[in-house]
């Protein structure tokens, strides 16, 4: 019985292949005032896998991306399952209020699109699109993305270069040379699953206080990114 099912599934799979071999143009805009995106991972993948799921614990690969901006483990993991990836279209950090584009991104056999990048400066914040079903109909589709917290690191807001998974602290404030003077906002995390980021706390004391971040500058409200996907 199982063999019969498998055999009958083959023509269907081939049909799906021809339908979903889409070419996409993708434009990603950082909508924030003063938060940078680390190198972006854009992934076209199938139904059975995800880069992340809201309300579910982060994988160690997602954690490496969210805590330190390292997209290599996550992209390799999904590529191993047949995902088609585009890495780092901004060729480095995507600055606030600027855009990066990918032209003619080949989704291969895949019918879902996901996007992630770490938010700097945060402890384990990231911008995310999860499991968006790529439409069959040609056209232009606009999506707005939220800021997530990976739930893997306490948001201490101490800028100490700590970007490796499990190392406390924030890797850097882009464009600044920060010598930490802060005592730390918190050492605990209440939600250990991927959730909506509650925002940076910051303070206005550049020579002390609880946070190395500036409460007037290093903040945001959702949505943090706009994505325009053009299905060819």
């Amino acid at each position: 019985m199982k063999t019969v099912k498998l055999l009958s599934a083959i023509p269907l799979a081939l049909a799906a292949h021809s339908v979903h071999a889409d070419m996409l143009d993708i434009e990603i805009t950082n909508l924030t005032h003063a938060i940078h995106f680390t190198p972006l991972l854009i992934s076209a993948h199938n139904n059975g896998m995800s880069l992340f799921k809201p309300g579910v614990m982060a994988s160690s690969e997602l954690r490496a991306m969210a805590e330190g901006g390292n997209i290599a483990p996550l992209s390799e993991m999904v590529a191993g399952f047949g995902a088609s990836n585009s890495l780092n279209p901004a060729e480095g950090l995507l600055a606030p209020a600027s855009s990066a584009s990918i032209m003619r991104f080949d989704t291969g056999n895949n019918s879902y699109l996901s996007i992630v990048a770490m938010l700097l400066p945060t402890n384990d914040g990231f911008v995310g699109l999860n499991d968006w079903q790529i439409p069959d109909t040609a056209g232009s589709y606009t999506l707005y993305l939220n800021a997530y917290d990976a739930g893997t690191e306490a948001n201490d807001e101490i800028v100490n270069g700590g970007g490796a998974p499990g190392t406390p602290g924030i890797p850097a404030i882009p464009g600044e040379e920060t010598v930490s003077t802060a005592s730390g906002v918190t050492s605990s995390e209440q939600n250990h699953t991927v959730h909506i980021h509650r925002g940076n706390v910051g303070d206005v004391d550049s020579e002390g206080g609880k946070s190395d971040l500036d409460s007037r500058v290093h903040r945001w409200l959702n949505p943090v990114a706009k994505v325009v996907v053009t299905v060819k």
């Binding site: 809201p54 309300g55 906002v185 909506i196 980021h197 509650r198 925002g199 959702n222």
Partner: peptide, 12 residues
């Protein structure tokens, strides 16, 4: 305290 702050959306 800081832990109680939130941004939308709050739930899926």
């Amino acid at each position: 305290d800081q832990s109680h702050r939130f941004d939308a959306p709050i739930a899926l």
